[in-house]
Design a protein around this nucleic acid. Structure first.
Lengths: 232, 232
DNA sequence: ACCTGAACACCGTTCAAGT
DNA sequence: ACCTGAACACCGTTCAAGT
């Protein structure tokens, strides 16, 4: 789909550095990686590419298309691990791969986590998960439910990881512990008691906890499903 | 905390309609509810309130503070259900309450789901969950892990629900089913087979599936935890 | 076919001035 | 103490013009 035929430059056959949709998006991702979404404007992007702002519109429809393109680039950067046949491990490995890319592009990650893309790129990850769950014994409908549940967790977890970014990591939480007695007096006894655990947040540990929980639940579901048809 | 003393108007004692932080934020939420985040600007907000744009800065620090304020308002609108003592039901009820508010303010919801707030408002929900999990038998540390896992799922699930809003609900997914043979040929056989289930998305059903999964997993964890200390 | 520059209709925010 | 208007330094995008 789409006008992606991208004929090679015809004028100068040798070393044409010409502007390209690809180049525009790569530069855009770099700008976001460097300075966050707010550092990306059509004008800053043009400057980065040494070109007039309006030239960009020959390769992308508008700024929104640039943001979609960054998300697509992000998805392409995820290298999907080869399934091993052990579905629990495979699901976890896939989630970990997504997470790794988010760690490499923390400021671009919200673009992928927040917008819904019509891209085919997103489907290859979907394909992989569905394949794994199918091999595990989940029928298609339940596999889709499981996929969506894991994806929802992934989105929420990664969004938390990347947006507590380098700016103020757990700063307000740090205050929390110190105000402990204040919390107890304001009717928040459980928050007060859990304050040390609320103040600390080891992202990897939290991520693993959640994935453990989900995988365990899926496993349990699979067991009861296998038992039923046999009609013991 | 904060300069919220808010002395009553002194000039005209009677019926002063004066601008207020509260009024500014209410108007801001209304604008977002009506036209989405992009309809909110300091200037449109001022116009809505029949005032010069600069007057707003007497009540809020800047636009970012307005967005935080909207999120706070949102949190305040959630009416937390009274715990019944049945923790599975209580956790679910709490999540459902959050979800209900998101349904009432679909365009404002991303503000709450996306930014991390330093507000005390967020803590009362936390308190509630921790209380429920404590009563269920979870020690504080594990309760915090569980809270974060459920919250991550909640964020991801609601983000999907609200951003596939009235604009193009499942439109690209609709195409999916029709391209079935195309999908099979492009190496996406599992996507092809699950296409009808991928194309449809009953948000409530998906939400319940995920919550069921999480609650079941927590229950299982609680059981093994209870068995262990007894050292059978 | 691709790039350019001026121009339009917006932004958030500062600052000096009003009352 | 609160509100105002002009002004600054930005935006995304259209359009007519260049080559």
């Amino acid at each position: 789909m789409g006008p992606d035929g991208a004929a090679p430059p015809r004028g100068r056959p040798r070393g044409g550095p010409r502007l390209t949709r690809e180049k525009v998006l790569e530069a855009a991702l770099m700008l976001v990686d460097r300075g966050g979404t707010e550092a990306l404007s059509m004008r800053s992007l043009a400057t980065e590419l040494g070109v007039d702002a309006m030239s960009l519109y020959n390769h992308v429809a508008n700024k929104d298309a640039v943001l979609d393109g960054i998300a697509e680039l992000f998805l392409g950067r995820i290298d999907l691990p080869e399934p091993t046949g052990h579905w629990q491990r495979d699901v976890r490995a896939l989630a970990a791969a997504f997470r790794r890319t988010a760690a490499q592009h923390p400021r671009a990650a919200p673009l992928v986590l927040t917008r819904q893309l019509a891209s085919f790129k997103g489907l290859v990850g979907t394909e992989s998960v569905l394949g794994i769950l199918h091999a595990a014994g989940f029928p298609p409908e339940e596999a889709v439910h499981a996929l969506r549940t894991v994806l929802a967790f992934l989105v929420g977890a990664l969004l938390r990881e990347v947006s507590s970014g380098p700016t103020f990591s757990g700063q307000n939480l740090g205050d929390l512990v110190e105000r402990r007695e204040e919390l107890e007096n304001s009717g928040l006894p459980h928050v007060a008691r859990a304050a040390p655990h609320l103040a600390a947040c080891n992202h990897e540990e939290e991520f693993d906890f959640g994935m453990d929980l989900l995988v365990a639940a899926l496993e349990q579901r699979l067991r009861t499903r296998k038992r039923l048809p046999r009609r013991d």
